[in-house]
Design a protein around this nucleic acid. Structure first.
Length: 589
RNA sequence: GGGGUCGUAGUUCAGCUGGUUAGAACGCCGGCCUGUCACGUCGGAGGUCGCGAGUUCGAGUCUCGUCGGCCCCGCCA
């Protein structure tokens, strides 16, 4: 590069610079060769500037320009000139000017890229990931990654202003039971022992409260060895927050303020405070603990209508404590037979045995109910469901959990299908009072719904031993447009309480000592009341960027099978490496 | 672990009920062009039809298996 110094970026030149000398550096985005005059779109992360190379202005530069190809790297020196009015390009911020080149420095050439680096990329994702460095050159990816930077920056600025200290916690830490599968790291120095990569810095941030740091935050990588989804990566970034002497409302206010700042990065105005809804209400109305409140189609309880009805199947379900619930689709009456069948398939995907429907038909009623069900019952259903003449009422029955999953799945499906979702809206929602425990049928014991360090509601403490399933927790989730973007709780800060919870979870005393002894110990030394939250940074940025996949806002993400096509990770390692770690693989491949 | 879906030039896709030499567009290479900006124009190269078996006189096409991408269920305190 000699001692060339860039004078402007490729997004910078304006008519005010006309007549000045300029030196730009960047990549050849496109070359348009007209013979004696060649146009080059020079691109860097700030934009595109048109370079003009004329044989009559500089023959040598023109000869160089003839050999240029896409993605070659150049430094171009020349004079900023105004474009003729009829040649102005209104699509470019720099479109009123161009750089008349007299020197082209060929900094590097490039292989032909395996796909075109345009915003509407049409390459398979695997190829994009294998050549991620090219994919990331695309303006859209540059925008996403810059947005991510802006959000992180805004969060640090805000948390600092609010008196929070960013403190790092270990990545090589201790595997703990409960929760997701750990990524393990073998210890060479302690053969046969393993570190775990943190699923979150949960215990460390609580210990930092015990240490008197009062207000902590960290933008931190977390690791969970579970199967992936569009919104789940094995390593992801969390905005981890914890504070001492917390009031829930103070914490909510803090986070709402944080969201205002973060969303301002994408010019989205957020109104506070956010609505609140208890877990129970969310399940009743939406069948989900993370309801998308951008549209209606709320669930309707029909259980009482069938408790004493002639329809045996539903009657039995209700009398055994199950539910019959429905969704009314306002204009669903026009659905064809096939469309109805498709809906049944969707319901089955969410665990339904079947799905019944009812709709008005002129003065009568049409339905997929068996003949034995009277028109009177069906009319009662239509009344309860507030069906209009064009409505369709979809009905599922079973255990509450089952019915909720079916209808919430169906609700989202119908919301999209009927175009009821306004993509320009950002509906935040605090979901509160989660159950402290959920019963695990397979393990036949209670599990912590949030995590084992969550405090129960004071008024429910008496039920810890008598009716664990009815105990509510001081836990809360932050939901945005039907996606969980954060979750937290007020924590247990007394050792005896913590031991009671471990006991309720069926964790034996010895196991509690072995796995959490260090923490139980720490709790004894003047632990302040504390609580916090963790926010999913990747998901927040994904929503702000309008993307459907986390991979679009992570520079180097993993595929659905947790591989990296760029580096080919994970890969096998040499026998020497393994033996040094005293590790043997049982898999021959 | 299960279900769905996709896999044909570098890329996006077409390829009929199995039947000549597997096509198009973009990209790439070469020629021409002094105002283009998705430049235009003329010409050219480019294929393990994901992989492996099977059925058949004959398979891109049918069957089975397998691998990979994506989506979903399980899983994700």
């Amino acid at each position: 590069m000699g001692n060339l110094v860039r004078s402007h970026t490729c997004g910078e030149l304006r008519p005010s610079s006309v007549g000045q000398r300029a030196l730009l550096m960047g990549w050849v985005d496109r070359r348009r060769d007209m013979g004696q005059i060649i146009f080059i779109d020079l691109r860097d992360r700030e934009g595109i500037t048109q370079i003009v190379v004329r044989s009559d202005a500089d023959a040598e530069a023109h000869r160089t320009a003839e050999a240029l190809r896409p993605e070659y790297v150049l430094a171009v020196e020349g004079t900023v000139v105004a474009r003729d009015p009829q040649t102005i390009n209104p699509n470019l911020p720099t479109g009123e000017v161009e750089l008349l080149a007299d020197r082209i420095y060929w900094l590097n050439d490039s292989q032909t890229p395996p796909f075109e680096l345009t915003d509407d990329v049409r390459a398979p994702e695997e190829l994009r990931l294998a050549y991620r460095y090219l994919d990331l050159r695309r303006p859209k990816m540059q925008r996403n990654i810059r947005l991510r930077h802006a959000v992180s920056w805004a969060i640090r600025e805000y948390m600092n202003q609010q008196g929070f200290l960013e403190i790092e916690t270990p990545f090589l830490t201790k595997s703990t039971p409960e929760g997701a599968r750990d990524y393990l790291v073998p210890s060479r120095v302690q053969p046969g022992r393993f570190y775990a990569l943190p699923q979150s810095p949960q215990l460390f941030k609580q210990i930092l409260m015990i240490s008197g740091f009062d207000r902590y935050f960290q933008i931190v990588r977390c690791f969970r060895d579970e199967d992936l989804r569009a919104d789940r990566q094995p390593e992801f970034t969390q905005v981890d927050i914890e504070m001492s002497f917390p009031q829930r409302e103070v914490l909510f206010g803090l986070i709402e303020g944080l969201m205002v700042k973060a969303f301002a990065c994408a010019n989205v105005t957020v109104t506070t405070p956010f609505p609140r809804m208890t877990y129970q209400e969310a399940i009743e109305r939406y069948g989900s603990d993370k309801p998308d409140t951008r549209f209606g189609l709320e669930l309707i309880n029909l259980s009482d209508l069938f408790r004493e009805s002639e329809f045996r199947v539903f009657k039995d379900i209700v009398q055994k404590g199950g539910y019959v619930k429905a969704i009314t689709v306002p204009s669903g009456g026009r659905y064809s037979r096939k469309e109805l069948d498709d809906l049944v398939e969707v319901a089955k995907q969410f665990g339904a045995q079947g799905l019944l429907w009812v709709r008005p038909d002129g003065d009568g009623v049409k339905s997929s109910f068996p003949k034995a069900v009277t028109e009177e019952t069906l009319r009662a259903v239509l009344r309860r469901a507030q069906a209009n003449p064009d409505s369709l009422v979809l009905i599922a029955a079973g255990a509450l959990k089952n019915v909720s999953e079916i209808l919430s799945g169906l609700r989202l499906h119908l919301g999209r299908r009927e175009n009821l979702i306004d993509n320009g809206r950002y509906n935040f929602l605090w979901v509160t009072e989660f159950p402290l425990f959920v019963y695990d049928e397979k393990e036949r014991r209670f599990m912590a719904m949030h995590h084992p360090f969550t405090a129960p509601l004071d008024e429910d403490i008496d039920r810890l031993t008598t009716a664990p399933e009815a105990v509510r927790a001081k836990a809360y989730d932050l939901v945005l447009n039907g996606m969980e973007i954060g979750g937290g709780s007020l924590r247990i800060h007394r050792q005896d309480h913590q031991r009671t919870i471990f006991q309720a979870l069926g964790i034996r005393k010895e196991e509690a000592e072995e796995k959490f002894g260090f923490f139980l110990n720490a709790l004894q030394y003047g632990t302040p009341p504390h609580g916090g939250i963790a926010l999913g940074l990747d998901r927040i940025v994904m929503i702000l960027a309008g993307e459907k996949s986390l991979r679009e806002v992570i520079a180097f993400p993993k595929t659905a099978s947790a591989t990296c096509p760029l580096t080919q990770a994970p890969s096998s390692v040499s026998p020497a490496q393994l033996s040094e770690l005293r590790i043997q693989s049982t898999d021959t491949e």
